[in-house]
């Protein structure tokens, strides 16, 4: 396997974090769905949530530990503050935050101060799920656009 540069490692790390966010969002959506189903179905959903939690740890923990280890060993090699992927990660986070802020303002206007039969925890989970979904999907969409552009290699061009 080719040696991975520090920059490539950091971008892979961000990709894994985003995948973790997406899985967490799905877990929260399933959690919210639990409020609307019967006890037997909720039991199944609980099993799915636990499985997802384990998958999230498997996806995110190894690269996080490796990043921490590398940073502890040396001060700078795994830091790439200026990078295309870092920029789209920041943009995706902004999209997620903006979406939730707007959604909360709209919901407050629509629902007003009316009483809800659902507990506050449901709304907190729903808002978190929406934010994480928008953030991760925004990241993947921006990455996808870039992947279409990326195939340039001078040696290949010279031979064609």
């Amino acid at each position: 396997m080719a040696q991975q540069s520090a920059a490539q490692f950091y971008e892979r790390f961000l990709g894994r974090v985003t995948l973790g966010l997406l899985l967490l969002a799905i877990a929260l959506v399933i959690d919210c769905a639990g409020y609307f189903v019967d006890a037997a179905t909720d039991e199944v959903l609980r099993y799915v949530r636990r499985t997802l939690s384990v998958v999230i740890i498997i996806v995110v923990a190894p690269s996080t530990l490796k990043l921490m280890w590398n940073r502890w060993k040396s001060d700078s090699p795994h830091r790439e503050p200026e990078s295309f992927v870092v920029e789209i990660y920041k943009k995706a986070s902004l999209h997620g935050f903006t979406f939730v802020a707007l959604a909360l303002v709209v919901l407050q206007g629509v629902l007003g101060a009316g009483e809800s039969t659902l507990p506050a925890l449901f709304f907190i989970k729903a808002v978190l799920a929406a934010m994480l979904l928008v953030t991760s999907l925004s990241f993947y969409l921006q990455m996808q656009v870039d992947d279409d552009l990326e195939e340039d290699d001078f040696d290949d061009e010279a031979s064609s």
Binding site: E11, E80, E87, E150, D152
Partner: peptide
């Protein structure tokens, strides 16, 4: 010390480098 993706996106003007 950057990724290939960063270079390719700078080249096509999608990413303005620092």
């Amino acid at each position: 010390g950057v990724s290939r993706k960063t270079i390719s996106t700078i080249e096509v003007g999608r990413f303005v480098p620092s």
